[in-house]
Design a protein around this nucleic acid. Structure first.
Lengths: 204, 204, 204, 204
DNA sequence: AGCTAACCGAGACGGTACGTCTAGTCTTGAG
DNA sequence: CTCAAGACTAGACGTACCGTCTCGGTTAGCT
């Protein structure tokens, strides 16, 4: 993500880059994003401040990169959703795991930093989307398409919207605190999304 | 929201309070929340810095108050959802209006500030919920209960979850930029929430 | 000497002023002027950097003030030259004392700082002259006038020039290292200035 | 004069040496010594910084060398003082020329740089003396000895001291600003040094 | 109808961090 | 090897704000 002004990329010190990214990652967890400073990053990374300013335009960009860097490390991993043949059960299992992550203090701290930066600089969202969100969303899409093929889901269903409708309530509650982040909550989202609010058609 | 330590509330200058809140509100729109400073607020409000520190614990609290203050002004207003007898049409109309607000630059700027502060200081979410969110959510609940009584919605539907499922995708897209905030998007949310993904039960 | 922009003089903290001046004075002696930094002054004085920048335009100005401040403290003291009735003896005694000062390491360090700053910013010389040099030169003038009245010195002698001719060789040797700063050197200056180079007029 | 550590002198690039010295000389005149930086020298000379650090120990040494280099160029020139047979007239003419130089802005700027460096690093004075001062002082000595032989000056006069007494007041006024640098001033120095302050011996 | 304690505007203070600049060292690639 | 180029660690620069602390002036609410 470096802004590439004049500095010569080929001469860049990889060890400094790593040290900066690691220091940033650690400091956000320890002190929180609001108390993250460039000076602290430089000190912990054993790096001159100028080396940070040479390659990143802002503190937020460093933090952003440090998290995306971790995400990239995982990008080779298998992100496929389970497929037991029961779409409801599979979605519930995945969303339960997701909500457990949100309830983890360290994960939550990183997420807060990332979202705060996103709110400060919305231009970053495209990059965030591509490097962090897209792989996960694609996995959901694959699973839902399989369910559609299996006849569990209506042929004309809008799957892209469905994915966001499944995931966003978790993010919403986490950020706005409108209610507890429980397995019951995610289960009820899955039920709702799969069956809708409409009343059962009366037997005739 | 003032923390009330020792200062005597009855002696508080209402004109200073108003000037501070107004200055804050204006500065967030003009410069953005990240560049908001206590000194700038004090200067624009024609107020000593100490007067701010006396009544608020942080910059975020002032900003928060300045927005809630606007919300409180509206609290007498009618927040009821329309009821034409067609729950799908009514929800679509309301969500279209909501999405239009999110697409407004000024509203979006304020929302960014509010959410950024919330991520920095999650303790504020309870207050935010009570003063800004609760009235709106109550209105949704009222309308959905009416629909349930009318038989448009299943008797055992989880309406609280349904409301969050309706609203959160808008917030999600707005914040993460996963897609365009259009009327088509909100319409498809409503359809999804009302009918679900399940295929129509075959006529027998 | 503060440049007086906007800050309100009457609110100035005298204790901070003193601490800054004292810290500067001490640091020049310990580290030398070239290694004097505003940060070190602020740290030793227990003062914020801004408090220095508020009242002085540059590091040199602070140093300058810190030395003139010492000079001012002495300004009430008696700076008169001795008067034994023998102008040669009196001048030799005073110049021997002067040269001893120049040979003192601490005095020499301060003098180096002062002169270095003067070379960097010649505008300071007027102030230096008034506050540090003028009193001393006046004392010489008084003594030389007494000698003139006593007939030891020609009635039409240019005393102002004579004073500079007496003092400047010491400064010159000290700064350029053209030779050793000894009592023999200053004695010979006095002899030269009093009798000149001309051969004695032959007795006829 | 390079400090001679390890680098192999024979491989040294003469063109780089010249470019560095010339760039330094020019930058001192244009920006002043205080704003002279190694980076600016390297940039103007079209030279890597390391090439400067390899051959000189400090910025001051480069500047010093750049000026002595000019002085060395002149060392073949005739520096003898005029000899019209009238020592007073000859000295006045030379000192007038000297003071004119001091009043020249460019010469004064160089002199400031040189003296500032000398105050910062007194170890340089020996070198300065040998390469810049000594030839001039020797010329004075030659002329004064001629005057002594001619009977214009007392046989036992201390000529070395006399030379410093003649020259130092100019340097003193230039640096401390104790008075104007005029021909009248230098003339009166010559008169004073030649005749002294003593009153004319009464005719008997 | 004062008195007096508090709040008020103002802004200097001790600090922290900023983003920039320069020093002096180290690395790379060309000659 | 030396050299130009320039990235590196280090740390001071001067600025912007932080949150605290006086300072007079003013205002509210008790005597």
């Amino acid at each position: 993500m470096p802004p590439e002004t004049t500095p010569n990329r080929s001469r860049r010190s990889e060890s400094s880059r790593r040290a900066i990214l690691d220091a940033t990652y650690g400091l956000v967890l320890e002190k929180g994003y609001a108390k993250l400073t460039i000076e602290a990053i430089a000190a912990r990374a054993g790096v001159g401040k100028q080396t940070i300013y040479r390659w990143w335009p802002s503190k937020g960009a460093v933090m952003f990169d440090s998290f995306l860097d971790v995400a990239d490390d995982r990008s080779g991993e298998d992100v496929a959703l389970p497929d037991t043949g029961d779409i409801a059960a599979d979605l519930k299992a995945v969303l339960r795991a997701t909500v457990d992550e949100y309830n983890d203090a360290a994960y939550s701290a990183r997420l807060r930093a990332l979202n705060a930066e996103l709110l400060t600089d919305p231009k970053l969202s495209a990059e965030l989307f591509e490097r962090m969100l897209a792989p996960g969303l694609a996995a959901y899409l694959t699973r839902l398409e399989a369910a559609r093929s299996a006849g569990e889901i209506a042929a004309d269903a809008d799957l892209e919207t469905a994915i966001e409708v499944l995931l966003s309530p978790i993010h919403y509650r986490w950020q706005l605190g409108t209610g507890p982040l429980t397995h019951a909550f995610t289960d009820s989202i899955v039920d709702l999304v799969l069956t809708g609010l409409r009343p059962p058609r009366p037997r005739d």
